[in-house]
Design a protein around this nucleic acid. Structure first.
Lengths: 347, 347
DNA sequence: CGTTAGCACTCAGACAGGGTGAGTGCTAAC
DNA sequence: GTTAGCACTCACCCTGTCTGAGTGCTAACG
């Protein structure tokens, strides 16, 4: 047989595997030995290719849906392809221009930028675009404000330096005057200035113990209220272009479709997946089962974190079929992540 | 023929039409003459029923998909059914209890309540739940705040009396001190106190002309900035349970499904539809083409506005197949609308 | 005259059989 | 090691047949 050490593929075998994968990516149909010879002008006969294919199947790179169909790449094949075979293209200039232009409208609002990003990723890749927004707790505290709505109903507003806002309705034990609220705000603003939001809670709890506060009911009340306000609102996620998967032939089956949509209805799992790639550097690729989500069979995820300075803020990416145009999508995700990073840089 | 004046259906014909519709609602399959006699213990022979069915078809209440299938109700039939035949059930006590309980967790935050509502409508009806949130412009002004983020970047925050918040990032022409911003906020808060948000813009424009302002650059700047802030953020809409339509046999076809999901991806049309029923009183029903959305073929919408006092705030409802359990869903929508109204009452 | 039984007719859907073509694995020759 | 040749497999398509549900019409009935 034509391969040397275990799992080491000969050059020729790699070429053939690559041809099969790329053929399958465009046709979405099992690839036969004949098709492989036609494509990529391999000067081999179909019979030879068949021998190689049999080997590749044994090694777990290919399967055939039934005896007389061609071969289909497995997740393992895609993994190998992405790691060793794929020449990641560069994003072409026109495309880059188009992407950049889309942002000129979005303005500076971080939410708008991220929403636009997910739409953009979807429309450029023709798959689904996803963006995990920065956790509020990863921002820097900027401003606290209590607004009295009526009676004991108070709206607490928390502003971060990057312009994101979190607000919560709280019901205080007794009615407070506007003046009291103002003083409370001032106190908290001073106390918390410049702190990462993630540390705010600890700071508040610490302060509660301090002598100064123990004897000042107003301050202690302020702390109590603010403590109620701070709660990570949960990760926000933008998913766009879900209907694009209707175009993918492998999902024309209603059963599969159902599964996929169900998976996206419950976003928490997806968030979990994105969280995992939050700490990674650069583009990450999850193929099929590697996502560790069982409803994601047949789907791959390409992600990249985006940052501001050297702080990782969130993750963006594309979800598509495992049979995805990796060569094109990877640079898109990469470029977009860098662009978003730049846009959010100057806080 | 057995019917009197034009379009006036004899009692018997009504009974038969009703039987057909109700049969079709549960089976989702064309109803044959035989099936009609079996159900509802009509003491008629199939042959007689066939005659009646032929008449009903001619009148536009029924169609047959092909010669030897049974009959299927048309939109017109559902309309007639809903208007004249349907005995609207009452919502049973257990159900009511279950619904009420769901809200105990949601707290008072208006966004949370509405989101919960759409989920609830979906899960109780087994169709899709929709909620159109109140337009921000329909709220009462409560508080303005400028927060300086960095350099010339300012976050403008607008709080309404009901606790909703709108914020916008603006870039001022020149750098302003925190003090300046505070004075600007105070000025605006005084100026706009108690105004409906819809009138705020006009007020600002009017004030810009006043003498007092013309000679005070700070004030005029404040007005300019605030004017940039006020823009109706567009209607917000919650849609939940989209995957429920996978269960409906008439949508197992991938083509149909695609259409429906596409329709919901572009929400503006849906918003337009809900806007129309905003001014109506009580439960409204749109059957198929009555929605005036062509992708909504085969779907009906049941809506009801919810209010606070006598101010209409928004609309909520259910989207399901025309072949929907109207008798059950109508009271659910009605009850939920009343409940939500009560929850949002005490601002 | 409305109602009904009977009957011929229609048509979608299920089923079976034959043909086709793409593709395979094996073997023997190059 | 490579390739031509060949027998074989199997999904898919096409076709024809059968079945059953349902219809419309007509003639008889109370």
């Amino acid at each position: 047989m034509g391969y040397g050490m275990r799992e080491g593929l000969s050059e020729r075998n790699k070429k053939i595997l690559e041809a099969i994968i790329e053929d399958y990516i465009v046709t979405a149909e099992p690839v036969g030995s004949r098709a492989v010879t036609r494509r990529h002008g391999l000067t081999l006969s179909p019979a030879t290719v068949r021998n190689v294919m049999a080997d590749l199947e044994e090694m777990g790179f290919l399967t055939s849906p039934h005896t007389s169909a061609g071969r289909v790449p497995t997740d393992k094949a895609y993994r190998f392809y992405v790691d060793s075979l794929l020449a990641v293209g560069t994003i072409d200039k026109g495309e880059r221009e188009r992407i950049r232009k889309r942002y000129s409208l979005a303005g500076r609002d971080i939410g708008a930028v991220l929403h636009e990003t997910s739409k953009l990723l979807s429309s450029v890749s023709h798959y689904m675009g996803i963006v995990l927004a920065p956790r509020f707790s990863s921002t820097i505290f900027r401003h606290f404000e209590f607004v009295k709505l009526s009676g004991r109903r108070i709206l607490a507003i928390l502003v971060a330096r990057n312009g994101t806002v979190q607000n919560k309705l709280i019901e205080s034990a007794e009615e407070l005057s506007t003046d009291d609220l103002l003083r409370m705000s001032n106190y908290l603003n001073e106390l918390l200035a410049g702190l990462p939001v993630s540390e705010v809670r600890a700071k508040i709890l610490a302060e509660m113990q301090s002598e100064k506060v123990l004897y000042d009911t107003l301050l202690s009340r302020a702390l109590k209220l603010s403590e109620q306000t701070i709660e990570d609102g949960g990760a926000q996620i933008f998913i766009e272009g879900q209907t694009n998967i209707f175009e993918q032939p492998e999902f024309t089956d209603v059963r599969r479709m159902k599964e996929v949509f169900r998976a996206f209805e419950e976003k928490s799992q997806l968030i979990h997946l994105l969280d995992r790639s939050l700490s990674a550097e650069g583009v990450q690729i999850f193929i099929g089962a590697e996502t560790r989500l069982n409803q994601m069979e047949g789907l791959s995820v390409i992600t990249s974190p985006y940052l501001s300075g050297k702080n990782t803020l969130g993750v963006l990416g594309v979800i598509g079929p495992t049979r995805m145009g990796y060569g094109k999508v990877i640079p898109i995700v990469d470029y977009t992540a860098k662009l978003v990073s730049r846009l959010l840089e100057e806080e």
